[in-house]
Simulated assay, not measured.
Amino acid sequence: MTSLHLTSGSPCPPLQDGKVRIYAMRFCPYAQRALLTSAAKNVETDIVWINLKDKPEWLVEKSPGGKVPSVEIGDGRIVYESLIIADYFDDAYPEPNLHSKDPVSKAVDRILVEGWGKAGSPFYQLAFVGSVDAEKVPELIKEFEGVVSTYSKELEKRGTKFFSGDERPGMLDYMIWPWFERRPVIPMFFPDAANWDEIRQNSAAIDQWYNRMKEDPAVAKYFVTPEIHHRYCITVKEGNIDFDMLTKV
């Protein structure tokens, strides 16, 4: 695993025998999906961090469009897009199963994974845009937390510790987790823009889930504290992104 994010002019590290290469960015929630599922499946990985503002020239050979995450198998084949990578790991490494074996339950969870996309735009504007209109902030918070509340109610309806059941997290849990790990940065940026106590009351089930997820070994392996996420988001808002922040902590 490289410790720093590689930039233009950096050579591509050689593949390591017996390991699956993951091209990622340490603070990218989509890349975190690949990291979480590989860890949950106990896959031997070699992670190469990529500076997305000054990308190595060879990245387009490893990921069309120059995006992360991307996975390179030992025989040189490439798999990219976070949800497809997650499915690849679940299919290629049978245990433990992350998708439900029940076709209907699996389909419902896939719908919920796709539905989570509604939270992406308001979260991005709140966490990463430096010049977001102050008058729009309460509505953006309402939009984002409205999606969160929907998932909290779904978990409450299921009556289980995780979306996948009581035993351990499953695919849906891991696919939405990266945004919940970053969720605390919003009240850190906008402490007076919403009634946060009321919001927490409306998402009690998901807040309990959050605390359980932090104890999961795969989540704990790549967990970044809200304080560090907040510091990273500040560098994004200010236009001076610090990809290598964790090497200085």
Results as ranks from 00 to 15, higher is better:
193 A>R: 04
174 Y>D: 07
100 S>R: 07
18 G>Y: 10
215 E>L: 15
14 P>V: 12
118 K>W: 09
8 S>F: 11
79 V>K: 07
27 F>K: 03
229 H>G: 06
140 L>E: 00
152 S>R: 05
224 V>A: 05
136 K>S: 05
149 S>R: 14
231 R>E: 15
203 S>A: 15
152 S>C: 05
172 L>I: 02
157 K>R: 14
103 P>F: 09
202 N>H: 15
151 Y>Q: 09
132 V>T: 01
170 G>P: 01
79 V>R: 02
90 D>P: 07
172 L>N: 00
35 L>P: 00
235 T>Q: 02
176 I>G: 05
249 V>L: 15
171 M>W: 10
224 V>S: 07
34 A>I: 08
120 G>C: 08
127 A>R: 03
168 R>G: 01
186 I>D: 06
184 P>M: 08
244 D>I: 02
228 I>K: 13
6 L>A: 05
234 I>T: 05
184 P>K: 01
81 E>D: 15
205 A>K: 12
20 V>Y: 01
7 T>C: 13
192 D>G: 02
141 I>E: 04
29 P>N: 09
27 F>S: 06
215 E>Y: 08
120 G>I: 01
201 Q>Y: 08
249 V>I: 14
45 T>W: 01
125 Q>T: 00
40 A>Q: 11
173 D>E: 13
47 I>E: 07
198 E>H: 12
113 V>Y: 00
41 K>N: 07
37 T>H: 12
167 E>P: 06
64 P>N: 09
75 D>W: 06
191 P>V: 07
10 S>Y: 08
156 E>S: 14
88 Y>Q: 09
86 A>Y: 06
101 K>R: 14
60 V>A: 12
119 A>G: 13
247 T>Y: 07
56 P>I: 11
186 I>M: 00
248 K>L: 11
31 A>P: 02
243 F>W: 12
246 L>H: 03
43 V>E: 06
243 F>M: 07
15 L>A: 14
185 V>L: 00
233 C>N: 08
11 P>K: 15
69 P>G: 10
148 V>C: 10
54 D>P: 09
56 P>G: 09
42 N>G: 12
130 G>P: 07
147 V>Y: 03
208 Q>R: 14
168 R>S: 14
115 G>C: 08
80 Y>M: 11
212 R>K: 12
13 P>I: 11
63 S>K: 10
244 D>L: 03
232 Y>C: 05
127 A>F: 01
214 K>L: 15
39 A>D: 00
116 W>N: 09
72 E>N: 13
109 D>L: 04
103 P>A: 11
249 V>P: 02
206 I>Q: 03
93 Y>P: 05
32 Q>L: 10
40 A>M: 11
75 D>T: 10
155 L>F: 09
6 L>P: 04
1 M>F: 07
56 P>R: 04
76 G>K: 09
241 I>Y: 00
98 L>Q: 01
72 E>W: 11
198 E>A: 14
60 V>I: 14
40 A>I: 06
248 K>F: 06
234 I>K: 00
243 F>S: 11
155 L>Y: 03
99 H>D: 10
80 Y>R: 08
110 R>I: 02
70 S>C: 12
34 A>T: 08
247 T>S: 14
